[in-house]
Design a protein around this nucleic acid. Structure first.
Lengths: 129, 129
DNA sequence: TGAATCTGTCAGTAGACGCTAACGGAAGCA
DNA sequence: TGCTTCCGTTAGCGTCTACTGACAGATTCA
């Protein structure tokens, strides 16, 4: 067991990791993505959101709770109604995570392809370069 | 039931949705993200990856299968070993999804804030005037 | 005050998911 | 050929999760 980077105990990264984890788990559900899409362009009350789906209002309410807990939803009260809209800030951590992953894997892929080409082409030049 | 945008039956969007769904479900697991991070910077065999975690090799193998099915992993055979590395192309759909969501919600948030400010401004002006 | 509306919360259930142990297949070596 | 290594697959189990139905709190209006 070496746990090089598998289970880091960093302090600053832990919060980001936790936020990313919650956001990803929230987005992993198709219904929740549909809800997020609905409230991405306009503010809507819970009942209006529930009407868009065939599942019960209870299920939608729970989905709203998950999205809210993940920081992906903004809630505003208006009388008996509760208006929801997407919260773009909740996607920041996820964006940076994907960017980092993208850059790293893209760089690795490029390097491996070049190495492969170098080996098949001329390994002497590869070792010399 | 109106299903305006909750359950679209589009043709071109369905594939993208499916790919995004699989990628998100794959990334929603912390262990799979750790695996992806490991092979983002270097190509590694399955056994080497399994050593980094306390769970059994079986579990890691299943995680590798999920990541591979989601198009996030590239597999290459070398004798008895199977080498894995992250596949950046698998993140494209997810990136565009997040970009779209980000742009839409950010625009909405800005518009709502401006409207709110306008209302409160208008309100004070109307009540004062 | 009482009725109606809008919404969240609390048990309970069916299905999905991650994990382990046991097994089977493919490749390398004496 | 027989042994070993490396790896994926299957069956089974415990846990998590999305869902439904029933109930409770908050607000508005007559």
């Amino acid at each position: 067991m070496t746990d090089t980077g598998a289970d880091p105990d960093g302090d600053t990264d832990t919060d980001t990791e936790h936020a990313t984890d919650e956001a990803l788990k929230a987005l992993a559900e198709p219904r929740r993505r549909a809800i997020l899409r609905l409230v991405a362009h306009e503010e809507l009350p819970a009942g209006r959101i529930a009407e868009e789906f065939e599942v019960s209002r209870t299920a939608v309410s729970q989905h709203l709770g998950v999205l809210k807990a993940a920081g992906l939803l903004h809630e505003r009260r208006d009388g008996t109604r509760r208006l929801y809209r997407a919260r773009p800030e909740g996607l920041v951590g996820l964006q940076s995570f994907l960017d980092q992953m993208w850059a790293g894997s893209l760089d690795t892929a490029r390097r491996l392809v070049e190495a492969e080409r170098g080996i098949s082409d001329d390994d002497q030049a590869a070792t010399a370069g």
